[in-house]
């Protein structure tokens, strides 16, 4: 079997709205597939179909070679799901949540307790194990949620925007957990709105928009298309924006853009360009309040792939 999970031409409609317009997703065993897209692109719908929660209107999906509709019960033995919102029971304690899942997975109560304690320790929740989940912080809930999806040691794990709304330190915790899952041999489908997250974790990335895959490849190949890194400059004196743009153009050889007022950005190929930009800004006496080297945002990825901004960005701009 070549793929741990595979979706071919998935279609899902809600009334007149088409959530998925024939989407293909697949990952080889032991790899991470990043599904990158804005809100409403169809990420969650695709995950719900692969997790047997929704029936597709067209196309097919398999997990471990088994059809998710015809063999739903057997597929459910192989998967773990972590939803966009933490799907734990707020009234139950951390331990009770995990023991319940263990019992539902046919562990004996004693085994379920051992497994719960193991996972709570692994996710640094031992101290909070006896408290109701509603007293947990956002990061703790996400960790408990992730732990809950791992009780049955699934082969395939779906993580639907697992770090949305988390601060960077907590996000790193989740990232490390994902890496260790993959090291143990699991296959992961990770949806995200951040190229940075997909870049950090995924072996391959599918970019989706309006229910279609608009680009697919390794992080490196995707970055080659959308521009690897971007330098952003915000001059202290807005009048010198044109001068700063001139510096960026000269160093990168590309035409800089001004995504928002008082800021210019340009894609660059390597870190060396950054040092050069700093030198030239200094030489020309252009003071800056912001200067950064970063991966393109989702909006910039979309702009370079489709020539259009994401709808959300348009709404913000409007």
């Amino acid at each position: 079997m070549e793929h741990a999970f595979e979706a071919e031409g998935l279609v899902k409609r809600y009334g007149k709205t088409t959530a998925l317009a024939g989407i293909d997703l697949a990952a080889r065993p032991g790899t991470v597939l990043g599904v990158l897209g804005p809100n409403g692109a169809g990420k969650t719908t695709a995950v719900r179909i692969l997790a047997t929660l929704l029936r597709p209107d067209g196309g097919r999906a398999t997990v471990g070679g088994l059809d998710v509709v015809r063999h739903a019960a057997r597929v459910r033995r192989m998967i773990g799901l972590t939803g966009q919102y933490a799907s734990v029971d707020e009234d139950l304690t951390g331990t009770q949540n995990l023991v319940l899942i263990g019992q539902l997975l046919n562990l004996r109560t004693a085994e379920a307790k051992v497994r719960a304690a193991e996972l709570l320790a692994e996710f640094d929740l031992t101290e909070a194990a006896g408290r109701p989940a509603k007293t947990y912080s956002g990061g703790m809930r996400r960790r408990l949620d992730l732990a809950a999806s791992l009780v049955g040691r699934p082969d395939v794990i779906y993580l639907d925007e697992p770090t949305t709304g988390l601060d960077p330190a907590k996000r790193d915790d989740i990232w490390n957990q994902v890496r260790s899952l993959v090291a143990d041999g699991a296959t992961v489908l990770l949806t995200t709105q951040y190229l940075e997250e997909a870049d950090a974790l995924a072996d391959e990335i599918s970019v989706i928009d309006h229910g279609r895959v608009i680009a697919h490849g390794t992080p490196a190949s995707l970055k080659a298309v959308v521009g690897g890194q971007t330098i952003l400059v915000r001059p202290a004196d807005p009048a010198r924006l044109a001068d700063a743009a001139g510096v960026l153009a000269a160093v990168s050889g590309h035409q800089p853009e001004s995504p928002s007022r008082g800021v210019v950005t340009v894609p660059v190929d390597g870190d060396a360009a950054f040092t050069e930009v700093v030198k030239r800004l200094d030489l020309l006496g252009i003071g800056v309040t912001e200067l950064s080297l970063r991966l393109p945002s989702l909006d910039e990825v979309f702009f370079s792939l489709t020539g259009q901004h994401t709808e959300r960005a348009e709404e913000v701009a409007a």
Binding site: T52, L53, A73, I79, S87
Partner: peptide, 8 residues
């Protein structure tokens, strides 16, 4: 959703 994704 979690209950539905379990083999029960």
């Amino acid at each position: 959703d979690r209950f539905r994704s379990l083999p029960i």
